[in-house]
Computed example of a mutant assay.
Amino acid sequence: MSVKRYCYSCDLKDDSKLIAEYKAYHAEGKAWPEITKSIKDAGIVDMQIYLTGNRMFMIMEVNETFNPDKKAAMDAQNPKVQEWENLMWDYQQELPWAEKGEKWMALDKIFQL
């Protein structure tokens, strides 16, 4: 099985209370089961989110069945995913260079050892 990596970034609102709440939603075993199922069903085999200050970095390892457009379409049709995404907007904000409403932005790889 070949694995491909995608990396994204998003900002949280710069508020320590909100950041703590966001981290609690993402603590081990706390994400809604419907969300983790939708992630796995899309072909994502591993997902990690890192935080520094209020900037987040997401690393996804995906299998050959993953397609970002297909994942977006699946998410748009899933009421529980939409509920989660709307809730997460209470904590998240666009990166300064994002389009209005654009959340997680893809990162360009500029170096590899």
Rank of each mutant, 00 (worst) to 15 (best):
M1H: 11
V3H: 11
Y6C: 06
C7A: 14
D11R: 13
D11Q: 14
D15L: 02
S16T: 15
S16G: 00
K17Y: 08
I19T: 09
I19G: 02
I19V: 13
I19K: 04
I19F: 05
E21G: 00
Y22P: 01
A24P: 03
Y25V: 09
H26Y: 05
A27Y: 03
A27W: 05
A27H: 03
A27S: 09
E28K: 10
A31K: 11
W32L: 07
E34T: 02
T36P: 02
T36E: 12
I39A: 03
D41P: 06
D41R: 05
A42I: 06
A42G: 06
G43E: 03
I44V: 15
I44Y: 05
I44Q: 00
I44L: 04
V45R: 04
D46Y: 12
M47I: 14
Q48S: 13
Q48D: 13
I49F: 06
I49H: 04
I49C: 08
T52H: 09
N54K: 01
I59C: 07
I59F: 13
E61W: 08
V62P: 02
N63C: 02
F66K: 00
N67H: 08
N67T: 01
N67D: 15
N67Q: 05
K70N: 10
A72I: 08
M74N: 15
A76Y: 03
A76H: 05
Q77H: 07
Q77L: 09
N78H: 11
N78S: 05
P79S: 07
K80D: 11
K80W: 12
Q82P: 00
E83W: 09
E83D: 13
W84R: 06
W84M: 10
E85V: 07
N86Y: 05
M88D: 04
W89A: 08
D90A: 10
L95Y: 06
L95D: 09
L95I: 11
P96Y: 06
P96N: 02
A98H: 09
E99S: 13
E99K: 14
K100N: 12
E102D: 08
M105S: 12
M105V: 15
K109F: 00
Q112H: 10
